[in-house]
Design a protein around this nucleic acid. Structure first.
Length: 271
DNA sequence: GCCCAATGTCGAC
DNA sequence: TCGACCTTGGGCA
């Protein structure tokens, strides 16, 4: 479930279980063995997330850089840790906990300088502290672009951390057609989208899932049977193709956009 | 067992 | 724009 909220949550959870103590670092699958051997027995000193990138700090200026990609999964557990399966790329363990990483796109040992280069190529992240985060930088790019707002929201250079679910849901919540060109988005619309993403994604970190349905549109409030969408949260349009819009009843539409599935309500989201 | 899809990104053409 | 890559779980036989 890797959108930005998941990664920020992982930064907190890795820190909570392992920070400040000698940590056993292994790579049962083998692809990270050399680096694991180098770090094994040292201390996890800090953890950080920017968009969908996770950084685990060891020693002075060394970091494990993790990107889950589409398939990566992380699994925490208590001791005794079970024998790792052969797909575990990275296991951290101490006296009380273990955590397994499987299927990441990236798991690499990097320096401070290399880490900085990653920050430099990422746009502002609604979940980073406001002092390092400038939503106007994102709007400058958006307001100059003929690309669709749906594509721009997924471009990590423009804004970091938004994925396919938050993209679909935030556009629905603001009644914006996904095919609208970035340059046709008003500053007020962008402010509203950014502020909303900050709120939604913070809640996503807290609950470790994506919920976007406003209280007045929950099934209870609308006198309908309770539901939980396939991916475990409560949403308006994501993966709800051909089903009725919670608000107006129109059929939710879906289309391919840059090799990803897009979902929207043709009635609630006007050009 | 096989086939497919999935909340992502990169590089080749 | 397309394929490649990483892994798991669900549907179906």
């Amino acid at each position: 479930m890797p959108e930005g909220h998941t990664i920020h949550r992982l930064a907190l959870d890795y820190g909570g279980h392992f920070k400040g103590r000698a940590t056993q670092v292994t790579s049962p699958q083998g692809k990270f063995s050399d680096a694991a051997a180098l770090l094994n027995g040292t201390e996890l000193t800090r953890t950080e997330a920017h968009g969908k990138h996770l950084f685990l700090g060891f020693r002075d200026e060394e970091w494990i850089h993790i990107h889950l990609g589409l398939f990566g999964k992380v699994n925490f557990g208590g001791t005794p840790a079970p024998p790792p399966t052969d797909t575990v790329r990275l296991r951290l363990a101490n006296d009380t906990s273990y955590v397994d990483l499987r299927g990441p796109t990236t798991c690499a040992l990097i320096t401070d300088t290399e880490k900085q280069a990653i920050h430099d190529r990422l746009g502002p992240d609604p979940l980073r502290p406001p002092k390092d985060t400038d939503p106007n930088a994102a709007y400058r790019r958006i307001s100059r672009s003929r690309t669709t707002i749906a594509a721009l929201l997924m471009d990590q250079k423009v804004i970091a951390g938004v994925g396919n679910v938050y993209r679909a849901e935030v556009l629905f919540r603001h009644g914006i057609d996904p095919y609208r060109a970035g340059k046709d988005l008003t500053p007020a619309e962008w402010d509203a989208i950014w502020t909303d993403l900050v709120d939604l994604m913070r809640e996503g970190v807290r609950n470790n899932r994506i919920d976007t349905v406003r209280p007045e549109h929950t099934p209870e409030a609308m006198g309908r049977p309770p539901r939980v969408d396939d991916h475990g949260g409560e949403v308006y349009v994501y993966r709800r193709a051909n089903r009725p819009c919670h608000i107006c009843g129109a059929e939710i539409r879906t289309a391919d956009l840059a090799a990803r599935n897009l979902f929207w309500c043709p009635n609630c989201q006007k050009p």
